[in-house]
């Protein structure tokens, strides 16, 4: 467990340092994710320990957004007049964007070179940690 935590925190630190050096708009954790992905590609896969820690963290991804979500109920009073605009933008805007991007994705993925791979999705995953 601890080994996995050390690897993840190390790559987050690497990512944040790299982003600070390059003055990039990409956040440190995302840079850390890319660096860890590269390291896994070079090393040829995660250790059992790293897989377990990663799985446990991802399982609670939604929870980590909860404090920020509560904030929407405590907007500064001067923004209350814009609540109808905010809510309609979030609800209708998301529905429109999902339908458009879904339609686009479905049309693009229907091209011949990607349909033949569709049957392979049910194959057992390459890594035993998936089962």
């Amino acid at each position: 467990m601890l080994k996995g935590v050390i690897v993840i925190l190390l790559f987050q630190l690497l990512g944040e340092t790299l982003v600070a050096l390059l003055q990039s708009p990409v956040p440190g954790p995302v840079a850390g994710m890319i660096l860890l992905w590269l390291a896994l590609a070079i090393k040829g896969g995660p250790s059992k320990d790293l897989s377990v820690v990663s799985h446990n963290l991802i399982q609670y991804l939604s929870l980590f957004f909860l404090p920020a979500g509560v904030g929407l109920f405590f907007l500064p009073p001067e923004l209350h007049q814009y609540l109808p605009a905010l809510i309609s933008a979030m609800v209708a805007g998301t529905l429109v964007a999902m339908l458009l991007s879904g339609w686009l994705l479905k049309s693009l993925a229907r091209s011949p070179d990607s349909t033949q791979t569709r049957t392979q999705v049910r194959n057992p995953a390459r890594n035993p940690a998936d089962q």
Partner: peptide, 9 residues
């Protein structure tokens, strides 16, 4: 932050 990094796996 660490969960974002963990998504690499």
């Amino acid at each position: 932050g660490p969960t974002t990094v963990a998504l690499a796996i």
